[in-house]
């Protein structure tokens, strides 16, 4: 609420302090999806900045798929809502809205992140890649081509997030084993039941890149 001075949205609440209180280092926080893709310093810089913002709208510039986009957001607006509701970049999907399902996965400075669990103001100055920037129907990314070949999608609502997660996974693990694929892609959920196709698609795309 704009007129209340307590709670996570208020200037008095420091997320940096919160993380410190948990004793979470940058590596642990990144692994847990709390501070996707960033160092503690970057997060701290974003924190310093966002602490001065609000409660009303503020104008920020986001670097999305290599293009600078100006957007007005309140500090409480998530990156996901800024993308979908204000910039009409709707490939990242809103499903659980609390960092469980991965349907909103984007890349932040090349690392996968849940866009629902990051504020838009924190994303300023970071290189954001959304599904729209990974490939196009005319020029597919190898993982997208593999998703089609292995029918790794049904309703397709989890697909953009899964594709982003798979692309990031393959960058870190160019020659994964089947077991590594199964272990490494647990951060995304599908309801139609496309995991068998996704597993094959990831292994196949790794092969395309010259992997095992």
């Amino acid at each position: 609420m704009a007129d209340e001075k307590t709670g996570p949205d208020s200037p008095g609440f420091s997320r940096r302090g919160f993380l410190k209180g948990l004793g979470v280092g940058s590596a642990g926080a990144a692994a847990a999806g709390l501070m996707p893709g960033g160092t503690a310093q970057q997060a701290a810089a974003a924190e310093e900045k966002s602490a001065l913002l609000g409660p009303g709208e503020t104008s920020i510039t986001l670097n999305i798929n290599g293009e600078s986009k100006k957007v007005k957001v309140e500090p409480r607006v998530t990156l996901l809502d800024a993308l979908r509701n204000r910039l009409d970049v709707t490939g990242a999907k809103k499903v659980c809205d609390r960092g469980t399902c991965g349907a909103c996965t984007v890349l932040v400075d090349g690392q996968p992140a849940y866009a629902c669990s990051m504020l838009a103001v924190e994303a300023e100055g970071r290189a954001l890649t959304t599904i729209e920037g990974l490939g196009s129907p005319e020029e597919l990314h190898p993982i997208q081509a593999a998703f089609i070949e292995h029918d790794a999608q049904q309703c397709g609502f989890c697909t953009p997030g899964f594709v982003m997660a798979c692309a990031a996974f393959l960058k870190e693990n160019p020659n994964p084993t089947r077991e590594e694929v199964r272990r490494g892609l647990g951060g995304n959920l599908c309801r139609c039941g496309t995991y068998a196709g996704i597993t094959e698609a990831v292994l196949d795309a790794a092969g395309v890149k010259g992997g095992a």
Partner: peptide, 20 residues
């Protein structure tokens, strides 16, 4: 292959939730 595979896997498919 499903015909809408490319439009879905590249995030271009517009679902009700995506209509602005």
């Amino acid at each position: 292959d499903r015909l809408d595979g490319a439009i879905k896997s590249t995030g271009r498919a517009k679902y009700a939730y995506d209509v602005n």
